[in-house]
Each structure stands twice: as C-alpha cells, then as structure tokens.
Design a binder for these strands. Structure first.
Lengths: 301, 301
DNA sequence: GAAGTCCATGACGTCCACGCATACCAGACA
DNA sequence: TGTCTGGTATGCGTGGACGTCATGGACTTC
C-alpha cells in the first residue's frame, strides 16, 4: 500500500497514541479495542515503510520517522477539522486557543488570566485541560494544544528533548512554600528552619511517579505520609484540619483557605520553582499570543 | 458519517474532479469507473452535509462549499505527499516548482526560462505541463500547479472569476503577428494591410472551442480553412510549405523555421496579446518566485 | 428521432477493518 | 518459582465500505 492513501482515522489514531504514550489508553480514549489500534498502527507503519513507534516496556515512543509523520499529521487533521467546521457553517473559529496547564496553575493563574482575556478580548474563546508535564508536552507536539503552562524545578531542564525544541517563556520564579495548620507550632513564625521539618506528618500527592510530591524535598526517605490526595482543595483542607503539612507552589497563595498558614523554609538547598509557558515554534496564533500575554500579566502577581 | 473521517482517496478524487471539470474524465485519469467517482463524490457530499458540485450539462462546477473544501483538501494532500516523500528518505523537496503553460509558451519562453534558472539555481527542479487556460487555472486552484503562464486577449478579462482572485503579472504585451510562406506575395513587405487578408487560405488550430484560432481575428466567418493542426511545429511547417497563413503569437518569434516570413498587420482593431503569469495568493514559494523572475527576464526578449 | 454527452443508481462481489479471544513478553511481588 | 499486572501482537469470523457492471434519465446535436 502506498502512503498516499492512508486513512484519516489511522492518522487520528496515531496522533492519539503519540499523545497518550500507549496503544491501550489511546484505544480506550477513542472507543476502540486495543487490537484495532495495534492494527491501525501496523498498517500505518507498513505504508510508511518502517517503524513509527519504538515498543518499550511501559508503552511506546515515537521514532524519528514517527516524529516526522506526527508533524504532518497534525497539520492534516487540523485542516480536516477546520474544513468540517467551515462546511457546517461555523465561522472558521480563528479566535480559539487550547490551553494546557499543570494542576496547581488551575487554582488562580489560569482562571485569572482567562477572565482578564475575556474582559479585554471577548472574541477569543479559550478551552483548556489539566495534565502532567509529559502529557501536556506530548499534546503540544501532537497538535492538540496550542499553549501549555508547566512547572519546572532545579536544575530546570527543558520539559522534553524533542525536536524542534519547544519555545519557552518563564512566567515566574519563586521559592517553594510550606503549608501548615494555623494551630501548628510551626505556624508561629513567618519562616521555619528546614531542620524542624524532620519527623512531621505529611500530606502527599500521588501524581504518577513522584511519590514524595508534597513532602519537603531533600529530607531523607523515611518521612511519615499521613494522607495522600491528588486534589489541591482536599490537600489544603486536610492541612486546615491539622492532619499534616504539605508543600505549596507559590501560584496557589491567593487561594489558600482559612486555617492554613503559609511559611517559607530557610536552610537547605535552593527550592526555586519556575512556571513556564511552552509552545511549538512557529505555531503561536494571534489569540494564543494574547493569552500568553494575559498569563504573563497575572503570573508575577 | 462525520466529516472527520472522510477518506483521502475521496479528497484526491474530488481534487481531480475539480481540476478536470467532469466526473468522467477524472475517472479516466484516475483509472476508476465513472460510477466509482460519482459514488465517492456523493459520499463526500453526504459527509459535508451539502452539495459540493453543481451539475451542469457539460460536467460539474464547484459550489461555494466545494471551493471551501478544495482549498483545505489541497493543503491536506500536499502534506500527505510531503510526509510520504519525507518518510521515503527523500529530502522533503523544498526546491520544486510545478509550472503550467499554454501551448505557444512552450516554444521558447518556458525552455529559455527553465534553462536560465538551472544555470543560476541548479538546486531547483522544475516540472511542467502544457494546458489550456481553463485547465491550468483549475489546476492552480486545485493545488496541482504552483505557477502558470497563460495568454490573454482583449478585453483582458481575468482568467477566472474564482475566489480568492488570482495574483497576476504581465510578462509581455505585444501585437499578434502573421506567419506567411516566404514565397507568398504578402511576404514582400514587413507589414500587410488587413484588407489583403480576405480570401486567403488559413491553417487553423482546433484547440477546443475556438475553431477559428489561427485565422486572423475580425475577418468574417467565411474564411477558407485549408488545414487544421494542434501542434505549432506542424503549423509552421505547413506555412513553410506554402499551404496557407496562420496567426503567430510573438512569443514564438525566436523559433520560426526557415521558409516562414513573419509580418505585422496594420488596420483593423487592436490585436494585442498579453502573456500573464498567475498564481494563488499566498502560495508563492521561494523556488516559484525565482522561476517567475526568470520568466519575467526572458519574457520581453 | 437517433446518437452522443453527461451523471445517478440498483445489483452484485471482494476485501478490509473491526471486535473477541488468546498468545506473548517483561517486571513486581509473594 | 509461580502468579499477577501492566503492556503489544495475532488468528478468526463478520459486517460494511467500495469497487465494477449494467442500466436509466436528462439534455444537446445532427
């Protein structure tokens, strides 16, 4: 089979696989069987004349050829969707941005920026989804998102090593904070010493690999994790209820509920956190630029 | 069926139909049955939610929706082809131009320009085909050609009324000429009077509608057509053999064979002929620009 | 009116892509 | 070492999509 008549569903499947990282989850997300996805990819690879995915233990990764195809496929599918909208009579929707953000940006940064943008440019419609950095970056490369907000910790490596390299803009860089119950002894001062953190009870997240997310970094491994919660609202109210401590990205400062005291930690290595804006070079539409500026404006606040 | 999973072959069929102007000839060109093409289009129209083609006596014409789709489809198919080349290891071929030209530009103008371009920019590969103005213009709009050379006669209407309007550049504007056998009485002078052309024997072309192509325009209908020939080489040698007269576009002056004398005609309405370069706005690649300049350089010669 | 153009459509056959079930492979863990 | 749990690949049967063939309808041309 020639490459000239691959099926569009195959391309869409491929895009989803590239974004998800496994055939199985792509299948689930598309409402297909894993077997169907496997076959689609196989047929695509036959058409392409070589492997597009590198099979690994925990899923798949794109080969060089895969990256090549993904870039083209994103354009193709975008054109098809645009054609569909246009033919349906909708006005080509040139004023849409698709934003991705990591969890703690959803508390204040993203809502504030979107609200500000709606005030200054009511014509722009922003859609967004939450996700982890790798998920968001893959979505960016797959052409499913236009702009993402991700976090970065020392040593501040770029969010991926793909090609072409992502365009980055630092929204803010501030020190990591500590959330303690207002009733806790450590809440007495504006600042606590890192030595005082040993032996505390912690509220951790469990977002993927980083099992110690929420525990102050650099402490030894034997910390007591009293609770785990993915949701910031839950975590903060667990803190307020005196159930333990947790780390707090500065971006959530404006939305800390009563009963929680936020302090800085002195001593120990630098625990700066950057919030980065990332996008694909050359793919920044006008609405996306405006949204990026709105995010920059509220970022340092 | 949703529009999101139309088949690429359907798009390719649609593109070919748009370019050919009839389902039947598109089918022939693609190696399909006319019925298959008819079904493909029907299914595309079902997916699009409305007619894409306006059925007329002599074929089909694009509706507004059809134009919308054609523009998108051209991008899609180009991306797919580019992906195919890239995956096959070919170097993305950024240095290619596809040129279209009307018959009499093939005698000297196109060969000279292509040769000049090859001298100055050996990296650019030009491919080209000959065709009538409507064929070339449709191919331009279908995304099959990047640049076309067409002729235009008074009152110099644009080559089509489509949207967006084509970008045009006039390569040259000169008066129509008359080719006469060197042995003919009219060959005595550099210039003959239009009144002397009555009652001559003519060598006409039969390219499509214009049955009188080759006969000096404005004469009454009752001219004797001694021979018809599509090919310029044949026409010119028929003239050299004394078989009759024919009109000659100035662009062929450099390649007139011995035995043929070229003269101007005085009296009668203006018979200027323009040679135009046309392309789709925004679609002029760098190699295409260079070819356009090369054509401009030899155009007035 | 006969012949030619065009496009549409009913009746079929073939093939492809799906789901299901299963096989396979590697790591985690008791 | 066996078993469980992620992953991906594949044999098999079925339904639908997409071809061809043949025919029909609308219209122009001779």
């Amino acid at each position: 089979m020639d490459f000239t008549d691959v099926s569009l569903v195959a391309l869409r499947v491929f895009q989803e696989v590239a974004e998800r990282g496994t055939l199985t989850s792509a299948a689930a997300s598309l409402g297909y069987t894993q077997s169907a996805v496997s076959r689609q990819i196989a047929s695509l690879e036959r058409a392409a004349g070589g492997p597009l995915l590198e099979r690994r233990r925990d899923g798949v990764r794109l080969t060089a050829a895969g990256h090549v195809l993904l870039r083209r496929a994103a354009v193709v599918l975008e054109q098809i969707d645009a054609a569909g909208r246009e033919l349906a009579g909708l006005p080509a929707d040139a004023g849409a941005v698709r934003l991705g953000w990591f969890a703690s940006a959803g508390g204040a940064l993203v809502p504030a920026a979107v609200a500000a943008l709606r005030r200054t440019h009511p014509g722009i419609t922003v859609t967004s989804r939450e996700g982890s950095t790798p998920v968001l970056v893959r979505a960016l490369r797959a052409g499913t998102l236009d702009l993402v907000v991700v976090a970065s910790a020392p040593p501040f490596r770029p969010p991926d090593t793909g090609s072409p390299p992502l365009e980055l803009r630092t929204l803010s860089e501030r020190g990591l904070l500590l959330a303690v119950p207002a009733t806790h002894p450590l809440a007495a001062e504006d600042s606590v010493d890192v030595a005082d953190l040993r032996g505390q009870r912690w509220i951790a997240g469990h977002s993927g690999d980083d099992k110690l997310m929420g525990v102050w970094p650099g402490l030894d491994e034997r910390q007591e994790i009293a609770h785990t919660a993915r949701d910031w609202l839950a975590k903060l109210h667990l803190v307020a209820a005196g159930c333990g401590l947790t780390t707090l990205p500065p971006s959530l400062l404006p939305v800390v509920p009563p009963g929680v005291r936020v302090v800085t930690v002195r001593g120990g290595p630098s625990e700066q956190r950057r919030i980065l804006l990332a996008w694909l070079p050359g793919k920044l539409t006008k609405p996306a630029t405006l949204l990026a500026n709105a995010l920059s404006a509220v970022g340092p606040a």
